[in-house]
């Protein structure tokens, strides 16, 4: 059996989540990956452990990963594959279901465990339940939760490369631009430590209280939906059911009450620390270590203690 992984990348770098998707796909059989646009990414992709072939969609129409041409391309390749896999991020969730429609398949999103070639485990209800589902479709289209699979090693493989011609599809969409947040911090979904703030951060300005702590820990900055809704931080920082799903070694939650939908995004972290002035905040029910108190006093103390 052979699986095709749609390898998403940004700024010439393969996303770590895409390497987790490759790792998941190796459990299903031989692995080919599809790379759009960037030739530099193709060079990196041939070295990924476990990948035997890199398909390069070099045509300009695929340069911006628009779902309409890309789904048409993937559907045209589907004949050679039993499984089509992507990381469960904005890219995979945009392209894969559209491809599934073209193939008359019910996609299986957010897979956290592969039980067999046709049976998969996925969270439902914001992770409050885990459903084991068996697909009767001839092909299986999956998105993979990166937190559940260790990324495939970036080195060690020696795949062949095949350049694909463009496939015709109606031009119904146009890429107009992208604004990526510039940050020297690690990517939220692959960071070893995440420092997160909630409504208790009070304002956009005061949210920066967390910056020195993130600096000293080399951590990514996250936020609850409440903090995003209040305009403290941009949406790409959101951790939760409707944001990013993270599972770092250490997750530190400041001023986050612990709504179900936030817990859905971080409860698989190895160690959770919660700081909240409300001793009854639900976040303490999942935290390994809790401190009840004023985060604006505690965070600077923490920074000082960590610098020692």
């Amino acid at each position: 059996m052979t699986a095709l992984v749609l390898l998403d990348h940004e700024g010439g770098q393969i996303r770590k989540a895409a390497l987790s998707a490759v790792a998941a796909a190796t459990k299903l059989g031989d692995v080919h990956v599809l790379v759009t646009g960037d030739a530099a990414v193709v060079l990196a992709a041939v070295s990924i452990a476990g990948v035997s072939k890199v398909l390069h969609a070099a045509d300009a129409r695929y340069a911006h990963d628009l779902a309409e041409p890309l789904a048409a391309l993937v559907a045209s390749l589907a004949g050679g594959y039993d499984h089509i896999v992507a990381a469960a991020g904005a890219f995979g969730k945009n392209v894969l279901p559209r491809t599934a429609a073209l193939l008359d398949v019910q996609p299986i999103p957010d897979v956290i465990s592969i039980e067999s070639a046709d049976t998969f485990v996925r969270p439902i209800y914001a992770g409050n339940a885990l459903a084991t589902v068996r697909s009767s479709d001839a092909k299986k289209l999956l998105t993979i939760r990166s937190a559940a699979f260790d990324p495939a090693p970036a080195k060690g493989g020696s795949a062949t490369v095949e350049t694909l011609p463009g496939v015709d599809s109606p031009e119904v969409s146009r890429f107009e631009g992208v604004q990526l947040s510039t940050s020297d911090r690690p990517e939220l979904e692959s960071a070893r430590v995440v420092v997160s703030g909630g409504r208790g951060m009070q304002s956009e300005e005061k949210f920066h209280t967390l910056d020195p702590l993130a600096d000293v820990l080399g951590a990514a900055l996250g936020a609850s939906r409440a903090a995003v809704d209040s305009g403290f931080v941009p949406n790409e920082c959101q951790v939760g059911q409707t944001g990013k799903i993270v599972a770092p070694d250490l997750y530190m939650a400041f001023g986050i009450s612990g709504a179900i939908q936030h817990l859905a995004g971080m409860k698989d972290s190895r160690v959770i620390v919660a700081v909240n002035k409300d001793p009854d905040a639900p976040i303490f029910q999942v935290a390994d270590y809790g401190v009840v108190g004023d985060l604006f006093e505690i965070v600077p103390q923490l920074v000082n203690a960590l610098k020692k």
Partner: peptide, 27 residues
């Protein structure tokens, strides 16, 4: 439906840990 639900289970609950009194203790 194309998907058969084999089973639905509760996720393993995380246990509440301990509350600490100071930052020094936390570190």
């Amino acid at each position: 439906p194309r998907l058969t639900v084999v089973s639905v289970a509760e996720p393993t609950e995380r246990k509440a840990g301990i509350k600490l009194d100071s930052v020094a203790e936390l570190v």
